[in-house]
Design a binder for these strands. Structure first.
Lengths: 224, 224
DNA sequence: AAATCGCTTAACAATTTGATAATACAAGTA
DNA sequence: TACTTGTATTATCAAATTGTTAAGCGATTT
């Protein structure tokens, strides 16, 4: 599922097809193209793309028809679909979205924006899996509240976990003591000077790793 | 889980707030509002909305800052976020989407189009849900309210069932007590502190399995 | 009407966590 | 060296959080 994503683009203008194909391929996607609605359906069945970008106005079957036909089949029930249209008319946009599309993009569109939207859709799709930060052999799962180093789970208390998660969120960055206090303890709570140190110590101890560096007079940073 | 969806709208213009609130409520959503970034964060933590609509330009913390802050917390890792902006500048839109938003909408926007987009997002989100959950030897049928472990049916009371079904819907994920209260008990009911514990205990007892782990100060999670 | 069931709460026990104080240590400087 | 500043270590204690049990109450069943 999280392999390389396949995208099918259907548009009758060769220029647009080419520009989008080029840019999406550069982004790392596998791109399949179609020049009209019937070809789009054919290619969709053949390649089972993860995302289909459909121009609304095409010779033969138009984009909305294609969408309807595909959505009726179980195989395409959950496939991402984006409509591309020169029409910025409100009714059409609403109609397109109600038809079962995941987004509706109005031409002219820059490749950058389209790519952002495509990325955003895939990102959303993958959120069903998990949010894991990985630095070297250290995995941090904020959702499961688990740290894992070289296959071994490490149990951290809440503050410890939050503190380490913060530092590890930007490896190499030095977090000021104030910054840490604000993020982990919040602005309302006031705690003494040594509190952070003690937690840092516990983390170092539990991890058994030398990955938190002290920057004297400044703060702490996480590395490797 | 597929109960009524909660939407938090944050915008400093009262007019927009009101129009959107009215229209979304008419569509059947529960709407919470905030006038600025800080309020948005506060309300988000309090209500755990399913979708957050953020105006980018607000006094105090702007929308993008709010998004960043929320996304850092596990509880909002997967929450839907839409940016609302008067800026149609390409850079900002790309930036907004890369920041972790699910959509970027440029003002002026008609309520109809926005609602379509909101519906589209929820539709997509729900495509991931199934009525029957199977984890190892444990089968859960959320429609028939039946739970079965290694061939033996397990009789759970309503709340117990819903609680376990929720935890099991994402094995490993830590559900915050708030999250559990919202999903199982709903926002209107207020129950005491020990209520969840007692239900957890009963489930553990009836299952005879050690599959619910306590994460102190955070919540509970289901595993194997 | 009696018995049962499901849900919630109160009360108390058990546990874990987090903050602090006290002390030791390290590095830089006069 | 003696002094200063900043961090590490450790033990301790209070506070926060959860576990457990029993009991109350309304709804449902027998």
């Amino acid at each position: 599922m999280s392999a390389v994503k396949k995208i099918l683009i259907a548009d009758d203008e060769p220029d647009i097809l080419e520009i989008l194909q080029f840019n999406l391929q550069k982004e790392g996607y596998i791109v399949i193209t179609a020049k009209n609605g019937d070809e789009a359906i054919e290619q969709a069945k053949k390649h089972q793309p993860d995302l289909i970008i459909l121009d609304i106005m095409m010779p033969g079957k138009n984009g909305i028809e294609v969408c309807n036909i595909l959505r009726q089949q179980p195989a395409f029930y959950a496939t991402l679909i984006i409509f591309l249209s020169a029409i910025s008319d409100e009714g059409t946009e609403v109609w397109g979205l109600e038809t079962g599309a995941d987004d509706y993009v109005t031409k002219p569109i820059t490749p950058k924006v389209l790519i952002s939207k495509v990325n955003a859709l895939f990102r959303r799709l993958n959120k069903g899996e998990t949010a894991i930060i990985q630095i070297g052999d250290l995995k941090i799962d904020r959702e499961k509240y688990i740290m894992n180093y070289q296959g071994n789970d490490i149990i951290l208390a809440r503050k410890e976990f939050e503190l380490l998660a913060l530092l590890a969120s930007k490896p190499g960055k030095v977090f000021l003591r104030n910054e840490i206090l604000n993020q982990v303890w919040g602005t309302e709570v006031i705690v003494g000077d040594r509190t952070i140190d003690v937690h840092i110590r516990k983390i170092r101890q539990k991890l058994g790793l030398d990955c938190i560096t002290t920057v004297k007079g400044v703060g702490y940073k996480f590395e490797l």
